Computed example of a mutant assay.
Amino acid sequence: MVKNALAAQLLKAGLVDNKKAKKLSKQAQHEQRTGQNNDAEMKAKIEQDKQQKLAKDQALNQEKQRVLDEKALVAAISQMISQHKIKDTDGEISYQFIDAAKIKKVYINQQIYNALVSGSLVIAKENNSYAFLPKALAERINEKMAGFIIVNNTENNQATTDEEDPYAAYVIPDDLMW
C-alpha cells in the first residue's frame, strides 16, 4: 500500500488522499535514486495544505453555527408567540387578509376585529395557524427576525397622504363592511 511513513501519516491525518500519497511516495523514490532532496519544499506544501484544511473547516463550522443560531431564534420566537397569543377569539365576524399570495379568512369577535383594524393587534404565523398578538410584542419579534408578522395595520394607518391629493381629507375606513 503506502511505502513511505510520511505518506502514511498524511493519509491518516486526512491531509492527502491515496492518489497524492502514491505521488509523494514516487517522488521520494525518485529523490533517493537521483540524490535530490526537496524536504523544505514538501514541508511547505504540507503546511499550506494544513492551513487550507483549517480554513475550510472553520468556514464550515461558522456556517453550522449560523444555522443552529437561526433555528434557536425561530424556536424562541415561536415560543414567544405561543405564550403571548390572545385566546378566545372565536366570533361571527370574518376578517380577510393575505398570506403568501393567498387570501385567508378567520372568524373573530368584534373586540378583536376592532383591535386589528386600529392596529393595536397584529396577526402572526404560528406553525400552521394564526395567532393574534399585541403590537409591542410584534415589534420585538420583527426586530429579531422578519417573516412571522403577517398583518400589521399600524403601517396602513400611518401611511402618509399626498398633499396634492384632492381626496386626502376623505378617509376611507378599513372596517367598512359591504
Results as ranks from 00 to 15, higher is better:
Lys26Arg: 11
Leu11Ala: 04
Met42Ile: 14
Leu24Trp: 00
Ala28Met: 03
Arg33Pro: 00
Asp17Pro: 06
Gly14Phe: 01
Asn38Tyr: 15
Leu6Phe: 14
Gln32Ala: 09
Gly14Met: 01
Asn37Val: 13
Asp17Trp: 09
Gly35Glu: 02
Met42His: 08
Leu10Ala: 04
Lys12Glu: 12
Asn37Pro: 04
Lys20Asp: 12
Leu11Pro: 03
Ala7Asp: 03
Glu31Val: 02
Ser25Ile: 10
Lys23Trp: 08
Asp17Met: 08
Ala7Gln: 06
Arg33Gly: 01
Ala13Asp: 09
His30Lys: 09
Leu11Lys: 08
Leu10Ile: 02
Asp17Ala: 08
Leu10Asn: 04
Ala7Trp: 04
Ala40Cys: 06
Lys19Met: 02
Gln27Tyr: 09
Asn38Thr: 11
Leu6Ser: 10
Asp39Pro: 00
Asp17Gln: 08
Lys20Leu: 14
Gln27Ile: 07
Arg33Met: 05
Lys19Val: 06
Leu6Arg: 15
Arg33Thr: 06
Leu15Thr: 04
Thr34Tyr: 05
Lys22Arg: 06
Gln36His: 15
Arg33Asn: 03
Gln36Thr: 15
Lys22Tyr: 09
Ser25Gly: 08
Asp39Ile: 12
Asp17Leu: 07
Gln36Asn: 14
Asp39Arg: 13
Asn18Glu: 14
Gln27Cys: 09
Gln9Gly: 14
Asp39Glu: 13
Ala40His: 11
Leu24Met: 03
Leu11Arg: 07
Gln27Gly: 11
Lys22Thr: 08
Gly14Ser: 01
Asn18Phe: 08
Leu24Thr: 01
Gln36Trp: 10
Lys23Ala: 13
Leu24Glu: 00
Ala7Leu: 06
Val16Tyr: 03
Asn37Asp: 12
Ala21Ile: 03
Leu6Asn: 14
Gln27Pro: 04
Gly35Tyr: 00
Asn37Arg: 15
Leu10Cys: 03
Leu10Lys: 05
Ala21Asn: 05
Ala40Ser: 12
Glu31Ile: 02
Gly35Trp: 00
Ala13Met: 02
Lys22Asp: 14
Glu31Leu: 01
Leu24His: 01
Lys19Gly: 01
Lys23Leu: 11
Gln9Ile: 10
Ala28Leu: 05
Leu11Ile: 08
His30Ala: 09
Gln27His: 10
Ala7Ser: 14
Gln27Met: 13
Glu41Met: 05
Lys19Gln: 05
Ala13His: 04
Thr34His: 12
Asn38Lys: 14
Asn18Gly: 09
Leu6Lys: 15
Ala28Thr: 07
Gln32Leu: 05
Thr34Ser: 15
Gln36Lys: 15
Ser25Cys: 11
Ser25Glu: 15
Leu6Met: 12
Val16His: 04
Lys22Pro: 00
Asn37Tyr: 13
Ser25Arg: 03
Ala7Glu: 03
Met42Tyr: 08
Lys22Gln: 12
Asp39Leu: 15
Lys19Arg: 03
